[in-house]
């Protein structure tokens, strides 16, 4: 997003009639409230005691209703710290592999002329159209053969394979727009093809890498399917699966349920607050316009 169109459009915006502007705000604000309301209700009520939750679900926690009992139950009963750790390991390692291997492949596909280039580009992108979940039956069998069931490694492999197509697609598109001159210049300067990738190309695609990272991260962190199938043991549970099963056990203890939901929501919200600009400008930058 460049600044130029924004300023000229906002200039136009000022000249619009007051009534139109009010309608626009009413609709946007209304939907924003719909979007946030459930999240806010859950987080608010997680800080109340049982009576507060039921009698005044929409009120702020007051002196009479404020309570951290839900959180204390969750933290004493569940192994959330462990689950967080698992989610973190799986997400970070998968992301690292997606970005590194995806950028390497995208570089090869966008930079070099070779016979299989066209076919391999299409092959890599197939995965965008065909969800990896359809191969679940065979993935489980494969993991059994590789003795990787109930390991985080199995999740890392699957998520990397799942994230690569879109990463390769976006990065290839972007790398094609990079100036050929600068890579040639590095060649004339005597850099090897590897160093050109790491020292010239990677720094140039860093903004797009960040976008791809945030993008790929969401489905990995939130996935329920593969943890359920490949790594549902206590030691390898991810937060999403942990919360899901925790809620299953504590259906009657509402403060605990709400607290565990909040615990699962908060890190995502914090990350989003940090990266939202990146994410949104990434989506709107055209890299994903297809």
């Amino acid at each position: 997003m460049t600044d130029t169109p924004d300023t000229s459009r906002s200039r136009r915006g000022r000249s619009k009639s007051w009534g139109t502007a009010a309608t626009v705000h009413a609709v946007l604000l209304g939907y924003t409230i719909i979007a946030l309301f459930p999240v806010i209700v859950v987080i608010l009520n997680s800080f109340k005691n049982r009576r507060g939750i039921f009698t005044e679900p929409l009120a702020l926690p007051g002196p009479e209703t404020f309570s951290l009992e839900g959180y204390s139950t969750v933290l004493s009963e569940g192994s959330f710290l462990l689950y967080y750790g698992n989610s973190l390991i799986v997400t970070v390692v998968s992301l690292f592999l997606i970005l590194l291997l995806g950028a390497m492949a995208a570089h090869a596909l966008s930079e070099y002329r070779f016979r299989l280039n066209g076919i391999l580009s299409v092959y890599m992108i197939l995965g965008i159209m065909v969800p990896i979940r359809l191969g679940t039956v065979a993935i489980l069998q494969l993991m059994v053969q590789l003795d990787l069931v109930n390991t985080l490694v199995s999740l890392i492999f699957v998520y990397t394979a799942q994230g690569l197509p879109i990463a390769v697609f976006i990065l290839t598109e972007f790398m094609r727009t990079l100036s050929r001159d600068i890579k040639d210049c590095a060649r004339v300067d005597g850099l090897s093809e590897y160093r050109i990738f790491f020292e010239v190309v990677l720094p140039l695609v860093r903004p797009v890498l960040a976008t791809v990272a945030v993008f790929s991260m969401i489905p990995i962190w939130n996935d329920l399917w593969f943890p359920l199938i490949l790594a549902s043991s206590d030691a390898t549970k991810t937060v999403t699966l942990g919360v899901q099963q925790f809620i299953g056990q504590y259906t009657v203890n509402w403060s605990a349920v709400l607290a565990s939901l909040s615990i699962a929501i908060l890190p995502v919200l914090v990350l989003y607050a940090i990266f939202s600009r990146q994410l949104i400008s990434g989506i709107t930058s055209g890299a994903v316009k297809g």
Partner: peptide
């Protein structure tokens, strides 16, 4: 080069 090809970083 035509586009100067300076390393931006």
């Amino acid at each position: 080069f035509q586009s100067y090809a300076l390393y931006p970083h």
